[in-house]
Design a binder for these strands. Structure first.
Lengths: 352, 352
DNA sequence: CTGGAGTATGTTATCGCTAACAGTAAAGTC
DNA sequence: GACTTTACTGTTAGCGATAACATACTCCAG
C-alpha cells in the first residue's frame, strides 16, 4: 500500500561526505569545502560545478566534523525554566529575531525551575561547546556557576537584575517592580490588600516581586491582609478559584495583587461574573503585561516585563562577543518595566 | 566588588580535554573515556581516581568529538511551526516526558509556518546528524521531503494523518475532526453557521478542518453562512473583534465555529458580555481543548487535539528505532480527538 | 604448570571536516 | 625579462573523542 519512492538515492546507506562531492565534481575536498562555505577564492566555473554536484547528490554537510575541525560552533545555549509560561517563548522570539541575522542558532533547554535539572541541562549544553549561554535568572547552584565561569564563553543571565551576574545580565528588577506596584496601589487609596501567586521556593523572580511589594507596603504602614499560593494546573482556573476562596475568607479586601497575569485574568473574570465592582469595590493587578489581557472584557492592571526586549538585548550581547568584541560594562542592562493601570486600578485617590 | 572565585582553574584559557584528565589521574585517555561513559571494565580504584580528577578540574566532555568518533548523536530534531501557539509547547512536553528516560535529547527548530524556513531549519538540523526527526505536518517542499527520505534516520510526522507520511506518523485527522464537529452542530439543530479562523494558506491542519467541516455541512444541505479570517495579533482579542463584526454583518447566525480555542474564547467572552444567550441563541465551538478553557466563565465546546499524547507517541517511536528496532506498521498512529460539548453547544435537538 | 578465560589497561586508526601551508599558472610591475 | 602579486587549487596535519584490537596480569581447571 505504501509506495516508497526513493530519491536518486545512491543505494548505499552510508551518508554522503565531502569526498563524495569531491569525486563527483572532480576537485579536491578542500575546494568543495570552500565552495560550500563560500570562503576563499574559487573560480566561478568550479563553484558552479561543485554546487551542482552537491545538490544533485543531496549532500548535507556534517557540522559535527566541521565544528571539531574549526573549533567553532554556531550554537547559543538558551536555558529557561519552562515553556508553558508564555513569557519564555516570548523571550525566545526576541532571541531568534536577533540571531536570525547572524550565523548563530539558539538551542533551548528547559529546567522546570529545578536547580539540579538546570545543572544537568547546562552540562549537556556546554558539552556541545556553544558560542554562548543565555540563561534565565541569577540564582544557580555552585556547580552551575563554576561551569559557566570556566566555560570561557559569554554568559548572559536574563530576566532579573537583582544580584551579581557571572558575566553579562539583561533584565528588570523584580524587587523594584513589586515596590512600584505597591506604591501605585497605595496611591490609589487601597488598604486591605490580598496577594496570590505561585509557590515560590524556586521561582526567585516571583519571590523578589513579593518581597519588594511587602516592603513598600510596610513603608506605608500596611501589610498583606491575606495571601495564597498555588502550583500547577490551569492558571486561569486557579486564579478564579483562589480569588473565590480568598474573598470568602477575607471579605473586606479591597485589592488583589496577582503574581502573574494569567491568574489575575482568572480573578478578573470571577469578579466580573459575580458583579463585583472593579476597580471601585476591589482593585486588581497582575504582572507581565501579556498579550492575552488585550482580549479581556476589562483591561487588567499590570506591569510589562519587557521579555521580548530582554531576549533581543541578550542575543545582541552574544552576537557582539562572538564577533570578537570584548566584554563591556554595557553588557549589564537594567530595563524599566512599564506600569499599566488598565481598568482595574483606580486613577485617583479614594475619598474616605 | 565582584569576587571571582575561580575554580582550581588551570589559568590557561584552553578548554580541558580528555588528555588533561588522563594526565591528572595517571591513566590513559581511553580509560578516562571508559570511566566517564561508564562503559567497559575499569577497576573501582581507578574509576574513583578518574572521577575525582575530572570533577576537580571541572572537565566537561566534548560531545562534538565524541559524536564524530562514535558516529552517534543523541539528538532528536523537533521541527514545529511556532512556539506562541501553546499547542506546540504541549507537544514538546510530551516529547520531553518520554525522552527524559532515554539518552536522547530534543532540539527544537521553529518554522513560522513557512516552507522555505522549514527547509532551512531541516537542513541545519540534519547537518548535526540527529538520531531522528519529529516534524509537524505532512506537507513539505520537495527538497525537504528529499532530505528526510535520504537522511537514513527515523522521521515522524506529527499532528496530522490526512496524507501519506515519509516514514512514521502520529496525529489526528483534522478533516475528520471538522466533520465531527459539523455533525454535532447539525444534530443540535443549528442552521445558520459562521466560521472564523486563521488565514490558512499555510496552516494545512486548519484548512483540513475547515474542509471537513464544510463537507459535512454540505451533506446536510447546509453551508457556512459567513466567514472571516485573521492573522497575527492577540488571538483572544481577534476572536472578540471578529465575532462582533460578524454578528453585526450577519445577525441571524445561530452558531459560530472557531478554528481554535483562543479566538473562540474571545468570542465567548464577547457574547457573555453582550448578554447573548449561549448556547440557546447562539452556539459556539472551538478546537484544541486547551487548558485555558477551564478558567472561563462558561466552558467552550471544543475538540481535544491530543497533543501531549502525540508528542509521547512520536518520541517513543524515535526511541524504539534508536534502539535498533525496525520500522513497523504500528508507527503510523491515528488518534481520535474527543468532542467536548462544554456549555456552549446544545445537547438536544432544537424543536423548530 | 600449562592453557584458557576473565579483568584491567593501553595503542592505533579513524570519524569528516577545516586551518595552514604549498604549490602553480596567469597577470602585473618596473 | 626577472620578480612580485593575484587567483586558484591541492596537501598535510590535526580537532578530541571512541572502536577495535592488542597486551598484560591475574586466577583456576585439568
Amino acid at each position: 500500500m505504501v509506495v516508497t519512492l526513493s530519491q536518486s538515492s545512491p543505494a548505499t546507506k552510508r551518508p554522503l561526505t565531502l569526498r563524495d562531492v569531491s569525486e563527483a565534481s572532480g576537485v579536491s575536498e578542500m575546494t568543495v569545502s570552500r565552495v560550500l562555505r563560500n570562503r576563499g577564492d574559487v573560480s566561478a566555473e568550479t563553484r558552479v560545478k561543485v554546487q551542482e554536484a552537491a545538490k544533485r547528490l543531496g549532500y548535507v554537510p556534517n557540522k559535527i566534523a566541521g565544528a571539531l575541525a574549526s573549533q567553532r560552533v554556531n550554537l547559543v545555549a538558551v536555558i529557561i525554566p519552562s515553556l508553558s509560561n508564555m513569557v519564555f517563548p516570548e523571550v525566545l522570539t526576541g532571541i531568534s529575531d536577533v540571531l536570525d541575522d547572524t550565523p548563530l542558532q539558539p538551542v533551548v533547554g528547559v529546567t522546570n525551575y529545578l536547580p539540579e535539572k538546570e545543572e544537568e541541562v547546562l552540562f549537556e549544553m556546554l558539552s556541545w561547546r556553544p558560542s554562548g549561554v543565555i540563561i534565565a535568572g541569577l540564582e544557580h547552584s555552585d556547580a552551575s556557576r563554576a561551569m559557566m565561569e570556566n566555560a570561557g564563553i559569554p554568559i548572559v543571565e536574563i530576566m532579573d537584575v537583582d544580584g551579581e551576574p557571572i558575566d553579562a545580565m539583561v533584565g528588570i528588577s523584580h524587587r523594584r517592580a513589586g515596590r512600584k506596584m505597591a506604591q501605585a496601589i497605595i496611591k490609589a487609596g487601597y488598604k486591605r490588600i490580598g496577594f496570590m501567586g505561585t509557590k515560590m521556593p524556586l521561582d526567585h523572580r516571583a519571590r523578589k516581586r513579593f518581597e519588594g511589594f511587602t516592603e513598600a507596603l510596610a513603608k506605608a504602614g500596611l501589610e498583606v491582609a491575606d495571601q495564597e499560593f498555588y502550583s500547577g494546573g490551569s492558571a486561569l482556573l486557579k486564579g478564579r478559584e483562589m480569588t473565590e476562596a480568598m474573598l470568602e475568607r477575607t471579605p473586606d479586601l479591597d485589592f488583589l495583587y496577582y503574581s502573574n497575569d494569567m491568574i489575575g485574568a482568572g480573578g478578573l473574570l470571577y469578579c466580573l461574573e459575580k458583579g463585583i465592582k472593579v476597580p471601585k469595590h476591589i482593585g486588581l493587578a497582575g504582572f507581565n503585561g501579556v498579550e492575552l489581557l488585550d482580549g479581556l472584557p476589562r483591561k487588567l492592571a499590570s506591569m510589562g516585563s519587557e521579555r521580548r526586549e530582554i531576549g533581543k538585548l541578550a542575543a545582541q550581547i552574544i552576537a557582539r562577543r562572538a564577533q570578537g568584541e570584548d566584554p563591556s560594562p554595557e553588557d549589564r542592562v537594567e530595563l524599566t518595566p512599564k506600569l499599566k493601570l488598565g481598568d482595574t486600578l483606580k486613577r485617583k485617590k479614594r475619598r474616605d
